[in-house]
């Protein structure tokens, strides 16, 4: 008993150490964003908000934020729709097509993004959409859809499919039975899937690099070009914003998924 507790404590301490070591760079990023000097150094000699002011004043960063947001939302909508409907279809008709679907959907995640980026650049130029918002959105969708799909497979596997039968039996057609019987019971899962798609799109860099033009650059792409010129704290400012956005998203997801659980605990 005693020994077990000691082992537990040691395991936790070890786990925490590794986690801290891995997450510490994030703290460095945040701290360096408050540096006064123009060089990226840790720890900074003096602290100020000067780079935050520059960030707000520099239009190409704000444009990159807009671009990232646009690409992210577009990816989220398409990937969530495709992922949810694919998982739903697989669940209600587990035939031969379904057995092929799962590995097929996985393929984009197995191909190195640099190869995907180059081939899609060639492909989209041929297709006439070149380096544009749609091409980045489609590329990100290729990555985000499998993730949404697998999240939804697990969500649907816990769904009571008799509810769908009951809705149909009571006169709800295919769309209404989905909207009234399925959707309300899996909406948290869909939300988590959508959030995942958004974050994937927000941080994806390699494919975006190949598929963006000057006017459609997303944040990671701008950050990359910036760093290549000079390593200044502006990159840290942008990264801090990205970290904050991701954190907010995670908090929202946690609240959304546990809201029912939370209300049950409180009542």
């Amino acid at each position: 008993m005693h020994r077990e507790r000691l082992e537990n404590a040691l395991f936790r301490a070890g786990y925490l150490a590794i986690l801290t070591f891995m997450l510490l760079p994030l703290a460095v990023v945040v701290v360096t964003s408050f540096a006064e000097s123009g060089n990226l150094a840790f720890p900074p000699e003096h602290y100020s908000l000067v780079h935050y002011r520059t960030f707000v004043e520099e239009t190409h960063w704000l444009l990159a934020f807009d671009n990232s947001l646009l690409v992210g939302v577009g990816t989220t909508i398409i990937a969530t729709t495709l992922g949810v409907t694919a998982a739903f279809g697989h669940e209600i008709d587990d035939g031969r097509a379904g057995q092929v679907l799962a590995p097929l959907v996985l393929i984009p995640l197995l191909i190195p993004p640099i190869i995907l980026g180059i081939s899609m650049r060639v492909y989209f130029v041929r297709a006439g959409i070149g380096a544009s918002y749609p091409s980045i959105i489609l590329a990100h969708t290729l990555w985000a859809t499998p993730l949404v799909y697998f999240v939804m497979r697990s969500v649907f596997s816990r769904f009571d499919w008799q509810l769908l039968d009951a809705a149909k039996d009571l006169g709800a057609g295919p769309i209404r039975s989905f909207v009234y019987a399925v959707l309300p019971n899996v909406k948290h899962g869909i939300f988590v899937g959508a959030l995942l798609a958004f974050i994937i799109s927000l941080q994806e860099f390699v494919m975006a690099l190949f598929l963006s033009s000057r006017s459609t650059e997303t944040i990671p792409v701008v950050a990359w070009t910036q760093i290549r010129q000079s390593l200044d704290p502006m990159v840290s400012v942008v990264s801090t914003f990205l970290i904050i956005i991701s954190l907010i998203a995670i908090v929202i997801a946690t609240i959304a998924t546990n809201l029912d659980w939370l209300s049950k605990q409180l009542s």
Binding site: D160, Q162, L163, D165, A166, A167, K168, D169, L170, G171, A172, G173, S177, Y180, A181, P184, N185
Partner: peptide, 20 residues
């Protein structure tokens, strides 16, 4: 004819009440 166009109604084994 699909279930939603039939004049039948089913009581299911686990009752399948909509939880929400």
């Amino acid at each position: 004819r699909p279930a939603y166009e039939r004049t039948t109604a089913t009581v299911f084994q686990d009752w399948a009440l909509f939880p929400h």
